[in-house]
Design a protein around this nucleic acid. Structure first.
Lengths: 210, 210
DNA sequence: TAAATAACTGACTATTTGGTTGGATTACCT
DNA sequence: AGGTAATCCAACCAAATAGTCAGTTATTTA
């Protein structure tokens, strides 16, 4: 994700190994689930001996926590806070574009997150209860102001947020299904544009902004 | 799910037990994943001794297959085939209503399905490649005809289908997150109506049908 | 009611797996 | 170069778990 320009001192190897492990673990957790991923399988995928994995992460659960943390960081970097300054049209356009980009470029993050939520958000209860709830309320308020000002149609802001989330994340979480249905091996860059355009047009129209 | 009016003969107990086991297993698989669900935990949830579970299902994988099969049956019962006779507006209305109803009334089915797909559809590859792909193509064709006839706006039919799927299923798969954000304990019947209304209005508008 | 069949269950086993340990090896600094 | 701390790793162990089995109880049928 980042670089390799860290001071050539202690800790460099540590960071590299941890990163390798997290990436391997993420893939493994998606494919096999938490319990189904063995420390050995993560080690194999990372190209390290098992004991080495446990040397960098005290135990399996810590690996999972590290994966989750990385996922959440990516989440709120990539989500690109809704921009309140240029009216609802620009805000929605930017938001959709950011989320679609995330879904196509980092589907793994979205998948890990989705699995957590489906399984009852056992590790993310606090995140949802505090951070997420506040986020949604703040953004809903923003939309409501635009509605009250007559700048967009009167739609329920919270439902709108859910719709944007779901329709964009779908391309990450259900990647396999979508590719199978379209009889394709991989997404291509033009898919990102096409989907962004479709969703932007469609949703803006739904909001009475087009 | 169904009844207890089966002939009072051999096989009745078998059916009841199997049903109990499948329901328990479904819940367990959602919460703990396949590998994380132990036969013992399924047994406890079903209120039966472990050996009894293995008596009705040869092994754990068979239990999972039974759960998946039940899920798929529910899927194509509940999806309510798109009705081609009354134009796009009615078709979309009915389709959305059916899917929202499914999501709120049978979230477990949707969750099991979602987990399978996220994990790479390892048991559903064939289903997607044959059944699902044909379904989407047939429905897309239908929408395209309506578009060609000028009965609805020119939007990409496949993208539209994905949007309807994702926005409706979201309420099942992300149940936990939605409830947490809205600070609620459970869905209520009026939520079904509200969501149906929101999505129907919004999507019809997106299709230029309102 | 008696035989036959289905349902049930506790106890056991082979295997898998998370985690430990202790010592070898390598990287880093002065 | 030499010393020190970080890294690496094979072998090991205890706990957990899927599946078996042999024997018991309940139900159906003739």
């Amino acid at each position: 994700m980042n670089d390799n320009k860290k001071p050539n001192k202690q800790g460099r190897i540590r960071e590299q190994s941890q990163e390798k492990i997290i990436v391997a673990a993420q893939e493994e957790f998606i494919l096999q689930g938490y319990k189904g991923s063995t420390v050995q399988s993560i080690a194999d995928r990372a190209g390290l001996p098992k004991a080495n994995i446990l040397y960098y992460f005290k135990n399996k659960e810590n690996i999972y926590h590290a994966v989750l943390e990385k996922t959440l960081n990516m989440w709120d970097e990539g989500i690109g806070d809704i921009d309140p300054d240029n009216g609802p049209k620009v805000a929605i356009e930017k938001f959709i574009a950011a989320k679609v980009k995330m879904s196509f470029h980092h589907p793994s993050a979205s998948k890990i997150y989705a699995m957590e939520i489906i399984q009852g958000a056992q590790h993310l209860k606090d995140f949802a209860r505090t951070y997420l709830r506040q986020w949604v309320r703040a953004k809903a308020k923003l939309f409501q102001q635009w509605i009250d000002n007559g700048e967009m149609k009167d739609v329920d802001p919270v439902s709108l947020i859910f719709l944007i989330w779901s329709s964009t994340q779908h391309y990450a979480d259900f990647e396999t299904q979508i590719l199978t249905i379209m009889n394709r091996a991989d997404y291509e860059e033009e898919d990102v544009e096409a989907v962004t355009k479709f969703l932007t047009d469609f949703i803006l129209r739904g909001c009475g902004l087009k």
